[in-house]
Design a protein around this nucleic acid. Structure first.
Length: 457
RNA sequence: GUGGUUGUAGCUCAGUUGGUUAGAGCGCUUGAUUGUGGUUCAAGAGGUCGUCGGUUCGAGACCGAUCUUCCACCCCA
């Protein structure tokens, strides 16, 4: 088979077992989302390019999959751009649509577009695939699922508290112990940049800071220097490299550092509020931690920033993230800025973590319980009657479609992990019974239909 | 987008400094066993060595391009 068919890089096929296990995670998520009062919506897999472009930064724009216009798109291209081979300028002329890059921006678009029909505060969840033209790596795909829960129309910090509880509820249900929800606040990062006189370099500052656990203090300093942040400024923020201890202890270090920054102090107050409420409420399996170096997704977060780290010992990037965004809707021309806050679960990565830790429950894979062996036309009909009754009783049952050799039918049941087979030939038909065989123990018993249903339920 | 890495049977992998007809294990098919799967034994099927091009008398092996895998960077779920 020289030319084996293939799928694009970074995409995957899912086997029946994989789909079952993915559904197990999705069902757990959906159950908790609804328990917390979130309502489902769905949006198209592709949007107008103008909806997506410019919302994720330059890097994000590069990673958005663009959809080629239909028809003779080259004929409409401007001569200058074509002659200059200016790909960037040409892109907007030959592509007007793009694949969804995340679920947050389409949600913001949805809220603005339907603002008159929506009852606020609006809490929605959304479980759909997103696409990124990234280069694949461990836990990084070009097509993957995001599972988002967002709440818009309320500035209350109780929303943030709720999202921490939601993370706790989900990971507890999945049996995933030892996850850490790391929190930070955009206002603290702004405050830090402000205190050291580098407000104009906020993004460079935070991106470098974010790499602390990866490249170490020296690496961060080198990167900051290369971005034009002065050595004097870096000296002033050095305490945050070594901040440690409890959530409250870290906050007090920050309080000193940010004493002169109104924005910074506000960020501290917000985090303090959330932490106090969580401490009063308690968490089941998740640990809430303050991580000043957390700085992902800054292009639209304005307040709280969340990121979920997998349990220690599992090599995996973050398995969830989120934050508060105050002005995302204004980008789409909302007359009144709607504050939103939300979190995302990385389904594909959670899957990899659960698999690595062997945490999928056996009943996550539900298959056929009962296979009727086929001995011929008359026997098949006799069996189908029983199959029908079993299905009505809610038992997954099926008949082998061909009257193949018993060995073949038995090993079929074996390979599909079906625990019971029924043998019904002329003798059983004459007696009005079915021979039930347990494939694990080899035990067999002769039962009438009622007894059969009873034995299997 | 940058750097590295991988590709041989359905799967996991051997294949020496380039040399006849490319191998193993597992899986698959058939039989031993016409109403009993897993175990055992026997036989069999299955490959244009990712693709295209080049070097050579000769390429699975060497070179180039391309696709793919995995990893690091950028960035990110």
């Amino acid at each position: 088979m020289a030319q084996k068919p293939s799928i694009p890089k970074g995409t995957r096929d899912f086997s029946p077992e994989e789909v079952s296990r993915r559904n197990y995670i999705i069902n757990t998520l959906r159950h908790n989302f609804e328990l917390f009062g979130f309502q489902p919506i769905e949006t198209p897999s592709f949007e107008n390019s103008s909806t997506l472009m410019g919302k994720y930064g330059d890097e994000g724009d590069r990673l958005i999959f663009k959809i080629l216009n239909s028809g003779d798109y080259l004929s409409k291209v401007s001569e200058e751009n074509y002659a200059a081979k200016d790909s960037n300028a040409l892109t907007s002329e030959i592509s007007e649509k793009a694949l969804r890059y995340d679920l947050t921006v389409p949600f913001a678009r949805y809220v603005v577009q339907h603002q008159n029909e929506i009852e606020f505060p609006f809490k929605r969840y959304q479980i759909q695939p997103v696409w990124r033209a990234d280069r694949p790596q461990k836990g990084r795909f070009r097509e993957f699922f995001q599972c988002d829960a967002d709440a818009v129309g309320s500035q209350s910090l109780l929303q943030e508290v709720t999202f921490v509880q939601l993370y706790d509820a989900v990971f507890t249900d999945l049996g995933l112990k030892g996850t850490t929800v790391k929190m930070n606040n955009r206002k603290i990062l702004s405050g830090l940049a402000e205190t050291i006189g580098a407000s104009d370099k906020l993004i460079d500052f935070t991106v470098a800071l974010d790499k602390l656990d990866k490249i170490g203090e020296e690496g961060v300093i080198t990167e900051m220097l290369s971005k034009g942040i002065t050595a004097e400024a870096i000296e002033r923020v050095k305490p945050i490299f070594k901040v440690s201890g409890s959530f409250a202890e870290k906050l007090s270090v920050l309080k000193e550092l940010l004493a002169d920054s109104e924005t910074g102090k506000q960020g501290i107050e917000e985090l303090q509020y959330i932490n106090e409420k969580i401490e009063a409420l308690g968490l089941k399996t998740v640990t809430l931690d303050l991580d000043v170096t957390l700085a992902r997704g800054l292009n639209y977060y304005t307040g709280a920033i969340f990121e979920v780290a997998a349990p220690k010992g599992v090599q995996m990037g973050s398995i969830g993230g989120g934050g508060r965004y105050d002005d995302l809707t204004s980008i789409f021309g909302s007359n009144q800025p709607l504050s939103g806050v939300g979190i995302s679960f990385g389904l594909d990565r959670i899957y990899l973590v659960l698999e690595e830790l062997n945490l999928f429950p056996e009943q996550a894979i539900k298959g056929t319980r009962l296979l009727f062996l086929n001995f011929g036309e008359n026997e098949a009909l006799y069996c189908l009657k029983a199959v029908q009754s079993l299905r009505e009783a809610g038992i997954t049952a099926e008949l082998y479609p061909d009257s193949a050799k018993m060995k073949k039918q038995m090993s079929h049941a074996d390979k599909r992990n079906i625990n019971f087979v029924v043998l019904a030939g002329t003798q059983e038909m004459a007696d009005g019974v079915y021979t039930l065989k347990n494939m694990k123990t080899g035990e067999q018993q002769s039962l009438n239909l009622q007894a059969l249903i009873k034995a299997i339920s």
